[in-house]
Design a protein around this nucleic acid. Sequence first.
DNA 1: AGAATATATGCGGATATGCGAATATTCGCC
DNA 2: GGCGAATATTCGCATATCCGCATATATTCT
Lengths: 116, 116
Amino acid sequence: MQDLIKTMKALSDETRLRILNVLLERECCVCEVMQALDISQSRASRNLGILEDAGFLTAKRDGAWIVYSVDWQTANRYATPLAKLLRDSLDSSEVIAQDKERLKHAVRMGPTALGK
Amino acid sequence: MQDLIKTMKALSDETRLRILNVLLERECCVCEVMQALDISQSRASRNLGILEDAGFLTAKRDGAWIVYSVDWQTANRYATPLAKLLRDSLDSSEVIAQDKERLKHAVRMGPTALGK
DNA sequence: AGAATATATGCGGATATGCGAATATTCGCC
DNA sequence: GGCGAATATTCGCATATCCGCATATATTCT
């Protein structure tokens, strides 16, 4: 029961719904999420952690970055029925459209940002 | 989007999940919910109101009482996929079993409690 | 109308939540 | 090892949430 509450709380926040929406487009590292949503680093990291803890996301390290993606494996029982709901509710939102637009130009920053 | 957040917040509370569970058994007035969950009157009333505001419940007056029931009509898009999740998560909980047991003996109290 | 019951609501306090700013940690490269 | 970049975490504050208590409103019966 506490798990279900944790799950619902994870979805009770605008920032986290926006993050989930972006990650449904494609997997992202933290800095890409920051760019897409135009939010601070700590805010992105903290909310990604909450979604991960709730089981919606998995994190895998890729060099300097930590890449988050929707965990369809373990969160499928929640994500599947909810994904459609999210889509339906979110697509009509203006913020969401802006997030997706920014995501197109979001880039991974390093490493050392010298090779560019 | 704010509607979705309101919906998720409504489900992010143990008291409200317990209420929902009881109302999935059968419709109840406030005093029956108090008895089933063994909680205060204001607590029952307030949380029923929150669930109603989120669209999960409808309230109809029946004499002295106000009877709440799950609103499958308007909340169906949330309730249908979620009902199973709720069931799966809740049935394993001890509190939930107790609620259901108490519900069996819950009675409407009035009116005037003299006709009995 | 008046008494009693059922429900809703205002208020104050305790706790939880979300955020930015600053700091700590981890990794890759020289 | 040392530096810079990416991410995580701590801290303090503002706000939101939840509850009990008391009170207000609505309804029924006499």
